[in-house]
Nucleic acid binder design. Structure first.
Length: 348
DNA sequence: TCAGAGTCAATAGG
DNA sequence: CCTATTGACTCTGA
């Protein structure tokens, strides 16, 4: 249940103005202006070009307010609004049944303001890090909600949605297609009903992970250790828990399989290695520099991201650092165009 | 006060 | 231009 708490904490965080913390998290104000412009990357491949443009566009994100705030709060997840994002889709998708709030409630309650600078405070709820027993990586609801968002975000769709998707190798396409599907197709349904039906979810997840796996392999760069973890994610099929500390498998299974389990979108136990690998793969795929991703999506520095990607600590050992992984995870859950817009808009 | 976690900025290397 | 590494710093929880 602890996990639950955490999530709840996040959700409610908004009300508590957690994010303030985040905002301020740019403690020394370093991130603010400093590196942005240098970070802008240039598209390398045709496909990527779109990305590039997006990124470059980000150059002006300074004006961001105009764009981000008012228009699409949900998508505007930046450092400051990061929490809001979660809340946002939470809102959109009521499906997930939150855990016993009562239990948790006080926990996240106490810590009214807090964190002077740095730390994104969110995590202080930490409640004891759970033994790492649960594992649900479901955030699919985000997808569902996304689909809703699309409606008022047509421009992105047209602009970025398509171009980005195709990836050179089959994997890419696979990966994409499925994302697309979930986002547009099933996703819509999901939003209404129970959110992801087990089946739907599974397939989605499974496919995803699978494709990613391949990708990772293709990339191959990372140590063997990392690779092994990939599959860890959603294979209910075989009970094999991953090599290193990730405890996901079972949880997934339960989630997927369990009738209501599916609903519990809130609790997320993230397989950090898996996320790290996937992020690494995506960044490479789209030629997104770490610096950009780190700042725009995670609100962290390049060095931090690099370290996290290369040496992800097991979820159970993370405290406030979980937030960073959550953001990565969320980003992974989003459809391309949204990722792009996030990169673009979140440029604060 | 101390240890650990999480970051950052600087910097070394492709 | 990118990524990896690292020393230093802030916080937080004993």
């Amino acid at each position: 249940m602890e996990l639950t708490m955490e999530n709840i904490g996040n959700l409610h965080g908004v009300s508590h103005s957690h994010q303030t913390g985040d905002l301020m998290s740019s403690p020394h104000g370093r991130q603010s202006t400093t590196s942005h412009r240098n970070l802008v990357s240039h598209g390398r491949s045709a496909m990527v070009s779109s990305m590039a443009s997006i990124l470059e566009g980000a150059g002006e994100y300074r004006t961001d307010h105009t764009l981000s705030g008012p228009l699409h709060p949900a998508m505007t997840m930046s450092c400051d609004s990061g929490m809001s994002l979660s809340s946002t889709y939470t809102t959109l998708t009521p499906l997930q049944h939150l855990p016993p709030i009562s239990t948790v409630s006080d926990k996240f309650h106490h810590h009214p303001h807090s964190h002077p600078h740095h730390h994104p405070a969110h995590q202080r709820l930490t409640a004891g890090n759970v033994s790492g027993s649960f594992t649900l990586m479901r955030d699919d609801r985000s997808l569902a909600s996304m689909s809703n968002l699309y409606s008022h975000y047509p421009k992105d769709m047209s602009g970025m949605g398509q171009p980005l998707s195709p990836l050179s190798n089959g994997l890419g396409s696979l990966h994409n297609s499925q994302q697309t599907l979930s986002a547009y197709g099933p996703g819509a349904h999901l939003s209404n009903d129970k959110m992801l039906s087990p089946a739907g979810f599974e397939s989605h997840a499974a496919m995803l992970s699978r494709s990613e796996e391949h990708l990772a392999r293709g990339l191959g760069g990372h140590g063997a250790g990392m690779m092994s973890t990939l599959n860890g994610m959603h294979h209910h099929s075989h009970p094999h828990s991953q090599a290193n500390g990730s405890m996901l498998s079972e949880r997934d299974r339960q989630t997927a399989g369990g009738g209501q389990g599916s609903g519990s979108g809130q609790v997320e136990e993230i397989n950090t290695k898996e996320v790290a690998q996937r992020i690494t793969a995506e960044l490479k795929r789209y030629s997104i520099p770490q610096a950009i991703f780190a700042q725009r999506i995670l609100c962290r520095s390049q060095g931090t991201l690099s370290d996290l990607l290369r040496n992800p600590k097991p979820w159970s050992k993370l405290k406030s650092g979980r937030e960073t992984f959550r953001r990565m995870w969320k980003w992974l859950q989003e459809p391309e165009f949204q990722r792009m817009s996030a990169l673009r808009l979140a440029g604060k």
